[in-house]
């Protein structure tokens, strides 16, 4: 084996984790749909930093796991076995993505993520964990979990998930479509919960929605309009472009772990007096969920498209024409779900 072999590089990283002088961290198990993910953190500080968004799905007393991630920082890796020209879109590294291995570089932070499809092991390495960007805290390990989901009927979908225990809906749309505001409006209703505001796991065979990340984000400017969110914002993350709300810490009861997924809502900002929910088409749903999921995450675009087609045909498609009042938006969603019960 040589350095430019992805298997060799994966082993190099794993050895670096094992030999890390700072390794006195801990292992955490989280519920990943119906599977269990073990995350080995090399240091408690990294665990605290990375785990907040996954804290609601932490499980205890687990002896085995279906997938394993090693998350660590180390300054000992000083050079990569690839050239600058090998960086592709979404951080994919030419020559280090095979049928077995996936590798991507996170520009800005300098983190390297790898996944071995055979052993179901992932690695998240960064030189210094304080370089991990704030947004990674909102959806930690998303590339690795996307690669893992490629071998399953699950999809890591770039959409929000909202609803009630008996029934739930995806909320999907472009930036500025009102997706975040609509999702967060659900905090105003006791009978509505949120499975995720940005990414959710969906089983395309069973149409089951699973929560993955409990972090919700909102533009700082929108906080003035949605002032009910102010007490929930984590004020320790001031560098973030968006205010971050770790729902499991501040409003635990609002996090929906799992629900039957029945509807797809496409929010449209109308600035009307009243929020209305009207039927739309399967094609509209596909356009709203597929491209944004396919091009946010490295690799697997064709599989992602096929899974999105399956979902868009399984879910009942609706457009939610948004009024301006958050309380009224939440009421319209609640009434809709109760009516359809």
């Amino acid at each position: 084996m040589k350095l430019s072999d992805p298997a060799f590089f994966f082993d190099t990283l794993k050895t670096l984790y094992t030999n890390s002088d700072t390794r006195s961290g801990s292992t955490v198990h989280v519920q990943l749909a119906e599977k269990v993910l073990a995350i080995h953190f090399s240091r408690p500080e990294i665990k605290v930093y990375m785990l907040a968004s996954l804290s609601h799905i932490v499980v205890d007393n687990v002896s085995s796991a279906d997938i394993t991630i090693y998350c660590f920082d180390s300054p000992l890796l000083t050079a990569f076995p690839w050239q600058a020209r090998d960086y592709g879109v979404q951080g994919a590294i030419e020559g280090f993505n095979t049928t077995r291995f996936q590798t991507a570089y996170q520009h800005g932070s300098g983190a390297v993520m790898m996944y071995d499809h055979d052993t179901k092991e992932g690695i998240y390495w960064i030189k210094d964990f304080t370089d991990i960007p704030y947004w990674e805290r909102s959806f930690p390990f998303r590339s690795i979990l996307h690669w893992w989901s490629r071998d399953t009927s699950l999809i890591l979908l770039h959409a929000a998930g909202i609803g009630q225990q008996h029934s739930s809906a995806l909320l999907s749309g472009k930036s500025g479509s009102g997706k975040s505001s609509t999702t967060l409006s659900c905090l105003l209703r006791d009978d509505l919960q949120i499975a995720g505001d940005d990414y959710v796991l969906v089983d395309t065979e069973t149409s089951t929605l699973y929560s993955l990340y409990n972090c919700a984000k909102v533009e700082w400017d929108n906080l003035e309009r949605l002032d009910f969110l102010k007490p929930l914002v984590n004020t320790n993350i001031k560098e973030a472009e968006k205010a971050m709300i770790f729902m499991h810490e501040t409003c635990k009861e609002k996090v929906m772990q799992k629900s039957k997924l029945e509807y797809a809502f496409i929010p449209v900002v109308c600035r009307a007096n009243k929020t209305t929910i009207v039927e739309c088409t399967e094609a509209e749903v596909l356009k709203s969920i597929a491209p944004t999921t396919m091009f946010q995450l490295p690799f697997g675009q064709t599989e992602t498209f096929r899974k999105c087609i399956t979902l868009s045909k399984r879910l009942k498609p609706y457009r939610i024409e948004l009024g301006t009042n958050a309380t009224e938006i939440a009421a319209a969603i609640s009434e809709f779900l109760i009516d359809k019960k």
Binding site: V89, H107, G108, P133, F295
Partner: peptide, 15 residues
């Protein structure tokens, strides 16, 4: 999203 030059067109907040 796809046409960003990964070396020269990202700032410190990252891709």
């Amino acid at each position: 999203l796809l046409l960003l030059d990964p070396i020269h067109e990202v700032d410190q907040t990252g891709w």
